[in-house]
């Protein structure tokens, strides 16, 4: 039976179909999870997609965190289930307290819509287990509030626990320590500003996101959940499987 990935849909989400399409093309079954239903419907992984949940009123994610589905997502995450928040989904996860810190307005007060280089810093997360550290991925960003910030003590914790899993090569938004993506202490909850689902086919300009989303499917279908392969020892040698996962990747190893 194929892996079931739940994609949360808030009023104002707008990347849910892109996420579901990639999951389906990778062999998973995608289930839309309406925000008003307090259930993740037996899914093996949950994606909180990009968009403008509840219009981003008050603050991005501030109202979405009170949607009934978020209590189910929190329970799923607490049980070790893989959860990935992309862009607005990252903002929702920080507001919900599933990830630390906050996303403030971009430095320069500019809405950013461009493809950036992102370096994978750690393979120890549900989103990066298939990618060797140092790998540079080309993935689009599309956000106004993507400038990650947190308390100095939180930053030290993220750094020392190797929970900064993605960094910008050329920081576009002022994010602290070039952070593009982080994970929870259990490494099963990940938030990132770049959109891997928009880098899922060479026709879109890059297929580098496939390696990330394939990692998520590994975590969802892994026999050892909730303590899947992403939780293993950090010294484990990670094979770079980009070439098989992404078809014709534009990725390359960092020099």
């Amino acid at each position: 039976m194929s892996v079931r990935v739940g994609v949360v849909v808030f009023p104002g989400s707008n990347c849910e179909r892109d996420a579901a399409k990639v999951m389906t093309s990778l062999g998973a079954q995608a289930e839309m999870l309406w925000h008003a239903d307090a259930s993740v419907q037996d899914c093996d992984a949950v994606v909180v997609p990009g968009g403008f949940a509840h219009g981003d009123y008050l603050r991005p994610g501030a109202i979405a965190r009170f949607s009934p589905v978020m209590s189910a997502v929190a329970a799923f995450a607490d049980a070790g289930g893989p959860v990935v928040g992309i862009c607005n989904g990252f903002q929702v996860l920080t507001e919900a307290g599933l990830l630390p810190g906050a996303l403030q307005k971009n430095r320069g007060l500019k809405f950013l819509c461009t493809t950036v280089e992102v370096r994978v810093e750690s393979p120890r997360s549900v989103l990066t287990s298939r990618v060797a550290p140092g790998t540079i991925l080309h993935i689009p960003v599309n956000h106004f509030e993507g400038n990650y910030t947190c308390a100095p003590s939180t930053l030290r914790e993220l750094q020392s626990d190797e929970r900064i899993i993605l960094r910008y090569v050329d920081n576009p938004n002022g994010s602290i320590d070039d952070i593009a993506g982080i994970c929870s202490p259990g490494r099963n909850v990940v938030g990132l500003m770049p959109h891997p689902e928009r880098a899922s086919d060479p026709l879109l300009g890059s297929a580098d996101g496939v390696a990330l989303l394939s990692s998520l499917l590994d975590a969802a279908g892994g026999p050892a959940k909730p303590h899947g392969p992403w939780a293993q020892d950090r010294d484990r040698e990670m094979p770079a499987r980009l070439s098989t996962a992404a078809g014709t990747p534009s990725s390359r190893q960092a020099s």
């Binding site: 403030q104 307005k105 971009n106 430095r107 007060l109 400038n147 002022g174």
Partner: peptide, 14 residues
């Protein structure tokens, strides 16, 4: 209001 040390690009632009 934004906490001290948090970038305020709107204020700076005004």
């Amino acid at each position: 209001r934004l906490r001290p040390g948090i970038a305020d690009p709107q204020g700076a632009t005004i």
